[in-house]
Nucleic acid binder design. Structure first.
Length: 459
RNA sequence: GCGCCGUUGGUGAAGUGGUUAACACGCUAGUUUGUGGCACUAGUAUGCGUGAGUUCGAUUCUCACACGACGCCCCA
């Protein structure tokens, strides 16, 4: 049997509906913030990621899908979204557009050649956004608020925003040196990994799980102490804007992000739900003022965010968030003989075009099996087509909730179903249909509404 | 790249170096029920991840590989 590739997933059934729904929420919220959708290729020149990621090229070569195409071109399956967007920004001269900053969002698959584990696959889907051409701290805050609001709109509650500032290049370098100087005398008190990290990427020592409780780590110099005045001022501005937007956050000096094109604001949003594996960061981002220039574009300050869809969906599941996903069908048509079957084909066609979700039997099940199938599909109505009824131009419809049966003339069937399916929906759920167009603060949907003005009659 | 555990039918799974691989659910058919959802009866894997080895004989032991799960490294 041919199996799927390691670390790749088939998403189907109910789970696929969740993914699609999440997409619609992302689109809706991006639209409110006026980010426009951008689609860039999944394959890019290998060089894009090497240069884009700077001196941590070993990540790219070790953990990306690189190959040569038939023309001998060096190709890489994109491991993240930012580099492609920046490439496109430069190539399409978006910096020349008077409409600045350029605000775009993407949503697509990325590929990383890694060992799969909880919350980490080889093929992953990420959405993210980038603001190119703004150095305003408001942009940093806006990106964070946008991310938070997408999570909020989906119904996630247990999230935590961690922010930090790495400062500008000058601050960052000073800090790096200070860290090395601080850790060097204590090097043997740290774990093996940290000993290696000291030269390679000292900032990551702060993020070490093994040494997390080590006093040496706790007393290590903080990035914030090494910010120059301008950088500190900038970081405070970001916090001011977040406060104004009422976005809760925490300053966490151990947030350093892996790649060194980041400067100033960096942030991560983590899920705080029980049951997440060790990878509980839903998404992260930050400011990357040097990247456009590194890729031969004009000096352009940017800030962005990216979020893995897989982890997001997992968080929704673990929190048991209720999503407005269509379950079940409107009507199942049952039949016994060929004449009735043909009528089922005809009726299904008519009713589907009229907007109903209609199913019938395709596997030759006996009537009993067809009823079972209708139950499995959670059919709101069943209808056993019967030659005699059909000759009388009528049909027997059974409501599977009330168990009541009615004989309906075929002429009014569509009208009848329309009436039933719409009115009964209100009886069944505590659903409020108001659009918030009056004083009521509810936003519609399934909830208990306490408003007198509302159409819904729930207390 | 490293480590640990796992891989048995449509599903959840039990189990053994040796004729017919538990049990449950599901599914199919039948009986009964005024056309199903209950009950009863019957049927439902020549198969235990792939390959090789040990053995008279392996699903059960050994090794390799693949895949899955989790963790480390790394994390864009």
């Amino acid at each position: 049997m041919i199996q799927r590739q390691k670390g790749c997933n088939d998403i189907f059934g109910r789970e696929a509906k969740v993914w699609k729904y999440v997409d619609t929420v992302i689109d809706a919220m991006m639209e409110k913030y006026n980010y426009t959708y951008i689609r860039t290729p999944i394959i890019e020149a290998t060089e894009l990621f090497h240069r884009g990621i700077g001196d941590t090229t070993d990540i790219v070569t070790k953990e990306s899908y690189d190959f040569e195409d038939k023309g001998g071109r060096k190709i890489t399956l994109r491991p993240e979204g930012t580099a492609g967007v920046v490439r496109s920004f430069i190539e399409n001269k978006m910096y020349g557009d008077p409409n600045q900053p350029v605000k775009v969002y993407y949503n697509g698959t990325m590929y990383r050649y890694e060992r799969p584990q909880s919350g980490r696959d080889r093929e992953l889907t990420q959405f993210g956004m980038e603001v190119l051409g703004s150095d305003d701290p408001l942009s940093d805050a806006e990106v964070i608020s946008l991310a938070v609001n997408i999570y909020k709109m989906l119904g996630l509650k247990e999230i935590k925003v961690n922010i930090n500032s790495l400062g500008d290049t000058e601050s960052r370098l000073r800090y790096r040196e200070a860290l090395i100087k601080y850790f060097k005398p204590h090097i043997h008190e740290l774990c093996e990994d940290c000993q290696e990290r000291l030269e390679k990427n000292p900032l990551r020592i702060l993020d070490c799980k093994v040494d997390a409780e080590n006093e040496i780590l706790k007393r290590a110099p903080r990035t914030l102490e090494y910010l120059n005045d301008e950088s500190r001022d900038r970081f405070e501005k970001v916090q001011d804007y977040l406060d104004i937007m009422q976005i809760p956050y925490e300053i966490n000096p151990s947030i350093v992000r892996g790649l060194d094109y980041y400067n100033h604001t960096v942030f991560e949003i983590e899920a705080k739900v029980e049951g997440f594996g060790s990878n509980n960061v839903l998404g992260g981002g930050g400011r990357y003022n040097g990247l456009v220039q590194q890729l031969d574009g004009p000096e352009t300050p940017c800030v962005g965010f990216a979020c893995g869809l897989g982890r997001l969906v997992k968080a929704l599941e673990l929190e048991e968030v209720k999503l407005p996903i269509q379950e079940g069908i409107d009507l199942f048509l049952l039949y016994v003989n060929e004449e009735e079957k043909q009528y089922a084909a005809y009726l299904a066609q008519e009713l589907r075009l009229a907007g109903f979700i209609v199913e019938t039997e395709y596997t030759g099940r006996a009537l009993k099996g067809q009823f079972k199938q209708a139950d499995r599909l959670n059919a709101r109505y069943t209808c056993v087509l019967n030659s005699e009824d059909l000759n009388n131009n009528e049909v027997k419809i059974k409501d599977n909730r009330t168990k009541e049966e009615e004989i309906i003339s075929l002429d009014v069937l569509i009208y009848y179903l329309d009436e039933k399916l719409n009115t009964n929906a209100d009886d069944e759920y505590d659903e409020c249909h108001c659009q918030g167009d009056h004083d009521c603060h509810c936003e519609g949907g399934e909830h208990e509404c306490h408003c007198e003005e509302c159409e819904c009659e729930k207390e």
